[in-house]
Amino acid sequence: MKATVLEHYAFSWPLSAPQEIPRPAAVEAGAWRRFSRVARLAAAAAAPVLDPAELDRDELPMFFGTGLGEYSSSYGFLKSLFTRGPAMASPLLFQNSVHNAAAGHLSIALGLRGPSETLCAGALTTLRTFERALCWLEANSGFALVVLADDVNGESADGWRLGGMMGEPGEGGAAFLLAAADPRAEATLELLPRSEHAMAASSRRAAPFFCTADAQAVSNALFAGGEHRFDYPGCTLVASRL
């Protein structure tokens, strides 16, 4: 499966050096205040790649991948429940606690009314989200928006630290505007099968728990030019700049 890449944008930083997430001009300030941190990361990545004027936002599919999901909002909701009691449990945090809250916020703010899917596959989230988008394009052609975001910040990181789950926590966002085949594109993404030997080798690699590290690497590779291969269990993602 193969698609062309029309636009891409990615950013990330370690928890030890957090940065403010810039509000895209396309998102109103009032809406931005209601966004979870994951939604802000996703919007900051997605807005810049949605420039092509011919995109039909009523039909553009969005595939949103997140490894951790809305952990911060879930944590915040439960904290409000456990410390202040059921009567004071926060409905705002609850509605932001579902994994597709970020996709919902993006849909409202950017006027996206097409298909939408929120996908989680742990350390393989970037791969599976691309795989899903490539499957979609093979079946439907047209365009597909891939957005990836994970946040690890403040109190929500305590759980991960306590569990020793994350050696180097970080957060970020990434977005890719794909097309089944577009002559304007200067880059491609392709998913190839791998041999059993390669599967065994790749399954031993240590993977980060946040998905945007992989997405950042793919975006960097597309900027760098040439062909870059990302090996995963069972398949290889090939990012090429034409």
């Binding site: 996908l119 989680c120 596959a121 742990g122 599976r128």
Partner: peptide, 27 residues
Amino acid sequence: SHLAHRGAESVGDWIGATGPRLVVSTA
């Protein structure tokens, strides 16, 4: 346990599935 993908992994391991595994979470 909050990590949604654990469901696909748990069921996939239990039943011996060798294909792709992923979780969809659109509420």
